[in-house]
Design a protein around this nucleic acid. Structure first.
Lengths: 243, 243
DNA sequence: CCTTGACCTTGCCGTAGCGTCAACGTTTTT
DNA sequence: AAAAACGTTGACGCTACGGCAAGGTCAAGG
């Protein structure tokens, strides 16, 4: 047999056969005078063996090991490991399909769909209409959520979704917007920081003072005006003193 | 933010961030005077978005398309296709695990385990003990099986697993072995061919004469002695005339 | 002042399992 | 005799990055 016949017999491509030679899965047969490989039946048997194992999902490296081992001990081990691996893959697949189904079940599939459904529900009830600062805040919260797994952050935010809290929040966003072009020394800055400190739910205050302070503050305040950033700094000071 | 902070914030490697830049999934931010990339919050949001989609299982190319599309229509399509794909993968995984379980359930896990359980059961009941020709025959049958899906071949062979057929088969193998060093013109050759023609189940005879004649005959007889090959040639002639 | 260490930059190789040329020689068919 | 269909080796391409090389930049410490 020449390589094409062998390949057709077992149902693979000639490239595959040569690949297996290259990896040492199949011994190189004799060559004819013209350099062609000349296969015997045992090569076909060997090739079919390799294919069986490959179709079970063993990697070609594993197959080489198994064939070298030459008797069933190692094969049994490898197959069991493989089965474990497949079980893990099944679980992962199922989880992914669940998340997908949750996504597809939602009528809104905009860019915001990139946060979890739970987070999206909470964000929807935050008052962000028309406020530049509100938009920034939402970005920020969504971001923190994706970094930490969402549900923790969503829990922190839920108290802010009540109608009364929404009204107060709207007012605070408006006052933040007013400070966009203000001086950091403006008296409204300190006033707003104080009101904000009274408005935030205690668990949220803890979260803000709990984490390492400097790093995220800098990142966040870099997006705001000087006065708005000052509000944040004062706010954290206040919360820290209260604790 | 510099690239390390961004990466840590979203939970990926800096290499990943640069990779996304390279693929156009994430816009390149401004550079500082020293050439460092300087990220803003929106970059983190964008990166988190990409990660969400990637973790759902979209390829990076698909993610780029979805982001370019910029509103949910395409996303919904893509997600549905993805779900179909995942469903197929689940089915494939389940099938593989089934085959694996069948393999692991067998106490014998030698090289022969590379044929299907059905085929193995039939082969086990073929009389191959000690006969060189019997060994060749088994190789051959197993090989044909893997090429065609096993069950068809197994059905053809099943009539040969009865105790009486086993006895007759053993005798035929023995006579084949005797011909290993004989002359192709030996009178035992024609006699064996005739007996063999009477022994084979009709469906099997059909299968042997049905397929294209020249190719597999050459391959097979190349493994035998001249006299044994002659038996095969005569056998096929007889079967063809009988049909 | 110099070093050390932690960052950053670009660029290229490696991964698994082949598919797909390329560039060329051989065999078989028309 | 030409064309089609084989064979040979060699090399690049695909995914989604990891890892390394060979440097530039920056803050802190001896």
């Amino acid at each position: 047999m020449r390589i094409g016949e062998l390949a057709a017999l077992v149902g693979v491509s000639t490239r595959t056969v040569r690949h297996y030679h290259h990896l040492g899965l199949l011994p190189e047969p004799e060559r004819l005078v013209n350099g062609y490989r000349e296969y015997r039946l045992r090569d076909a048997v060997g090739l079919a063996r390799v294919r069986r194992l490959a179709e079970l999902g063993l990697s070609l490296d594993e197959i080489r090991d198994v064939l070298a081992d030459d008797q069933g001990r190692e094969l049994r081990e490898v197959l069991r490991e493989l089965d474990d691996d497949l079980a893990r893959q099944q679980a992962a697949l199922a989880a992914r399909r669940e998340r997908l189904a949750a996504l597809l079940a939602r009528p809104d599939l905009g860019p915001d769909s990139t946060v979890s459904p739970e987070m999206a529900a909470v964000l929807r009830d935050l008052p962000a209409d028309g406020s530049a600062f509100g938009a920034l805040d939402r970005e920020l919260l969504a971001l923190i959520g994706t970094g930490t797994g969402d549900s923790g952050v969503a829990d922190l935010l839920r108290p802010l979704t009540s109608p009364e809290a929404q009204a107060r929040g709207r007012a605070i966003y408006a006052r933040m917007d007013e400070l966009a072009a203000a001086d950091p020394a403006d008296p409204r800055v300190a006033a707003l920081a104080a009101d904000l400190a009274g408005f935030l739910p205690p668990p949220m205050a803890e979260a803000m003072t709990g984490a390492d302070p400097g790093r995220w503050m800098d990142t966040v305040t870099a997006e705001m005006s000087a006065a708005q950033a000052e509000v944040f700094r004062l706010l954290v000071d206040l919360l820290r003193k209260a604790a």
